[in-house]
Amino acid sequence: MKIRFIDAEAPPASRIFENLAAGHGDHPLDRYLKKGRIPHIWCSGCGNGILLAAFVKAMEKGNFDTKKTVVVSGIGCIGRAAGYLDLDTYHTTHGRAIPFATGLKLANPKLNVVVISGDGDLFAIGGNHFIHAARRNVDITVICSNNFNYGMTGGQGGPTTPLESKTTTTPYGCSEHPFNLVYLAKASGAVYVARWTALHTHELRDSIIHSVNKPGFCFVEAITPCPTAHGRRNKLGDGLSMMKSYRDNSVLTTELDPEETAIGLKGKIAVGEFVDIDKPTFMDMYDECAICRANAPKKSKKS
């Protein structure tokens, strides 16, 4: 077969480097962002920017080694977070950020590997990976932007959509019981579990620092407003009103059993740090059980 691709009259590749640095550096935290990536794709009032800012502030305050910190995302609005950070970043397939991150971390344990992704990505299509990575206690941090729906595809229902909540695919109200992510993470074996809302920027930042420094599978849930989809369909108002409702309804608690921390469409949101325990990571156990034994000098039969 003779092949003749139709060549579009494409501008030269060099064009993409033009003005890359324009405006970059105007803000002191720009040094944590890749050149030429702002403005971001998120709607005004979206909580994803606040979560990204919390992460960047964690990098600064926690003095993260930018050479060794790697961020992996799945697919979704928040999945774009990885691409803005001036780190090694991977934007993978829908639901698969955690196993991708597992490969990165185990192949080079010196890396600090952080997954930032959405509730649909991590708990619907990727739910199995979440529970298994937590069970194995792979030393990664998973940060979930929970906006109670699938933002990127226009606001469908998902695994965290509260009962009665309206989405494009639950037009009469959601009839499925949602996951309580804090409870799920604890039950799956996470060594650190915290939940904050987009209003709790300092707490989010500090939980991220703690998670990145702590060995083992750490989970931070950030409740984020999605005024465009979830907020609008449930008459929760604009981004600001949703933030106000977080202020009025958040209850800081360390006492509550994670089982008691489920979130409804309206009503109280339990926030705080719910789990902070120590146990050997996957690599600790693999070194002990596999590497050491495989290389142990063979015992002679006589002795």
Partner: peptide
């Protein structure tokens, strides 16, 4: 394990494929 490498049994083949891509990105 004899050469200090990593063997991991994942939860399914989707995860297995994702993990080897991640590992290769880390240089393995």
């Amino acid at each position: 394990p004899q050469v200090g490498g990593v063997y991991i049994q994942m939860e399914d083949e989707i995860a297995s494929m994702a993990a080897i891509i991640g590992a290769s990105c880390a240089g393995a």
